[in-house]
Structure formats: structure tokens, C-alpha cells
């Protein structure tokens, strides 16, 4: 065993240029995407957030609605945010049209979209939209304009389909421009110095089970490297709540309310701890916990709080020379 080192957040974020955030619907994937963006920018990386088709709204904590196809600045570099944070939205149709244009097929691209024949293309070659979105991400990676590209992947089941698309297409298409594109994307996905996947889950039964399944599929079928896993929505402990509850006497309205509220928090926390234990028992990945902030709508300040939590925990992970960052040593 070599001497252990503490990781720092800047090293973690610089470990690969593409970080794909994946998880089941409703686990707060988008919140985590935005959090990672701030976390990385705050340690000096020029960071770009990418949302794909669907209802991702990475910009919403920053007061932005849907991001445009062209990169926009989300937060400029400041003294507290030494890198800058930008974002864009990649839609499959945009990516396909851009791809065809870049391959001398501009007129055809327009026609495919206009006639609706694009449905035939994507049915004949499933995953072509996903591949082209990934191809665009790869192009951004290669351009070096950003130090880190954070991708808000489609929800769980779809994330697998999304990330499997290049392998499927490389097989199906034989040769030609799409085959070449698929090979290039596969190369990126399979190289942990270029690309990692961060799974997000909640400390609840169904999301945990799904995270475990997705993790194994991603590693085994797709050959992706997993970063530490984010457990979102953790109820923070309140110091002394347990002993205060046991000491609580009385049957007044107040006492009853205090007792019920304390029991509720404790029961939910117990359930959460159980699920986190199950998760770490079944999945040898480090966990980063983000707390459930007492608000129903996270704003920019909340995202900064979560980003600080993330960076603080990343810097507590111990890595030795042989172990991966994601995997527990």
C-alpha cells in the first residue's frame, strides 16, 4: 500500500474533461449538475454545463430558463468564482443538422428535417441522435475551450441507452461517417482521463436499487469509469435531537407536535442511513452526500452552499496511488 493522499477538489475536477451526470428522474440530477458547475468554477476551472433535450433546466437556479444551442455565460469569473461558468443546450436535431453540414451534406440535412424523414434515420439507426449529441460533446472536449464539461444526461434508463448508442451504432453501421463518429466517441467514453460518469441518487429504496443497477451496467456494458456517487437530499442531523426527545415530557399540544416532528425526522433519517449503508454495501463507490436544504426551490445561494459541501467532502476522500477516485480504497 502506498502512502495515502487527500484529493483536492481542483484535482478531482481536472481528472477528466467530461463529467456526465446520470440518475433516475426526480433525484435532483439537474441540481447536482448546477452544483458541480459552481464547485468546479470555484476552484478555478472554466466550466461548461450542457443540457440535452427534455426538461433539464440547469440554468434555473441562476434565473435562466432554457439554455440556447450556442454557449452562454451563466456566471462570470469573479474573485470567489475564479473559473467562469457557461452553459448550452444540445438538441439531437441541431446536432444532426450541424453534423451533416460539417460533412458536406447541408442540403440533405435540411431536407431530412423538413420532410420528417429524420424519424426514419433514427429508427433505421437507433441512437443516432444520442451519438450525435455525444459527438458534439466530444468536439467541445477536443476544442479545449473549457476545462470541464458537465453533461446533464437523460434520466436513468435513458442514460444507459444514451451511453450505449455509440457501441451499438459502431456495430450496426459498418463504415462511413457515422461509424467513424461512433468510434471516436467510444474512445472518449472508454478513457477515464477524458470522461467519467457521476451517478446521482436519493437515500431511498427505489433510487438506490436503480443506482446500483445502473452503475453495474455502465461499468460492465459500456466500460465507463464511475466517479464518486452523489447521494442527494440527505436530511441533516440536528445536534441533541435524540436526547432532547427522550427527555421530553408532557402531553400539551406543543409537546405532542415537538415529539411527532422529532420522530418523523428520526425515522426518515434512519431510513436514509439504512439505504446509504445498503448502497455502500452493494456498490464499492465513494459517496458524496448533499443535504436537503429547507427550501422547496433552490436558488443561486443554495447551489453555492451545496457546492461547498461537495468540495469539502471531495477533499476528504483518501486515495492511494493504485485506487480510483470513484472506488473506495
Amino acid at each position: 500500500m502506498n502512502a495515502a493522499d487527500f484529493l483536492n477538489a481542483a484535482d478531482f475536477f481536472a481528472a477528466s474533461r467530461v463529467l456526465i451526470v446520470a440518475g433516475k428522474g426526480g433525484v435532483g440530477k439537474t441540481t447536482v449538475g448546477a452544483t458541480l458547475g459552481i464547485a468546479a468554477a470555484s476552484v478555478g476551472l472554466r466550466t461548461q454545463l450542457i443540457e440535452l433535450d427534455g426538461h433539464s433546466s440547469l440554468g434555473s437556479p441562476f434565473g435562466l430558463t432554457e439554455l440556447p444551442y450556442e454557449e452562454v455565460e451563466i456566471q462570470p469569473a469573479t474573485h470567489s468564482l475564479s473559473g467562469r461558468l457557461s452553459g448550452r443546450r444540445i438538441t439531437p436535431d441541431n446536432a444532426l443538422v450541424e453534423y451533416l453540414r460539417d460533412h458536406g451534406l447541408k442540403r440533405i440535412g435540411g431536407r431530412l428535417v423538413k420532410t420528417g424523414a429524420i424519424d426514419v434515420v433514427s429508427t433505421a439507426a437507433p441512437g443516432i441522435h444520442d451519438l450525435l449529441a455525444l459527438g458534439k460533446i466530444r468536439a467541445l472536449e477536443q476544442s479545449g475551450e473549457s476545462d470541464l464539461i458537465i453533461v446533464d444526461a437523460p434520466a436513468a434508463g435513458h442514460a444507459l441507452t444514451f451511453l450505449r448508442s455509440p457501441a451499438g451504432l459502431a456495430d450496426a453501421v459498418g463504415d462511413g461517417p457515422i461509424h467513424e463518429q461512433a468510434e471516436q466517441v467510444l474512445e472518449m467514453l472508454g478513457d477515464d482521463r477524458r470522461c467519467q460518469v457521476m451517478l446521482v441518487t436519493l437515500p431511498e429504496e427505489t433510487p438506490v436499487s436503480e443506482a446500483i443497477e445502473t452503475a453495474y451496467s455502465l461499468e460492465d456494458d459500456v466500460g465507463l469509469k464511475l466517479a464518486p456517487l452523489v447521494v442527494n437530499g440527505i436530511l441533516s442531523p440536528i445536534d441533541g435531537l435524540g436526547s432532547a426527545l427522550s427527555a421530553l415530557r408532557g402531553r400539551t399540544k406543543e409537546a405532542k407536535a415537538l415529539r411527532a416532528a422529532a420522530r418523523y425526522r428520526q425515522a426518515r433519517r434512519e431510513g436514509q442511513v439504512e439505504e446509504r449503508d445498503r448502497l455502500s454495501g452493494e456498490l464499492p463507490l465513494n459517496q458524496i452526500g448533499l443535504t436537503q436544504l429547507p427550501t422547496a426551490h433552490l436558488d443561486e445561494a443554495d447551489i453555492h452552499v451545496l457546492a461547498a459541501q461537495f468540495n469539502q467532502q471531495i477533499s476528504q476522500l483518501v486515495v492511494d496511488d493504485d485506487a480510483d477516485i470513484g472506488t473506495k480504497s
Binding site: 451533416l100 420532410t115 426514419v120
Partner: peptide, 20 residues
């Protein structure tokens, strides 16, 4: 329409087009 069909062939390859 034929142009579109051929365009599809160019993008996805002729095997897949034949299947379609």
C-alpha cells in the same frame, strides 16, 4: 423523395436502408 432516401443511405449506410 428519392433524394431523401439516398440521403438516409448516405448517413446510415445501405444495409440499414435495405432493412427499412
Amino acid at each position: 423523395a428519392n433524394m431523401v432516401v439516398r440521403a438516409i443511405g448516405q448517413v446510415v449506410g445501405n444495409t440499414l436502408l435495405a432493412d427499412a
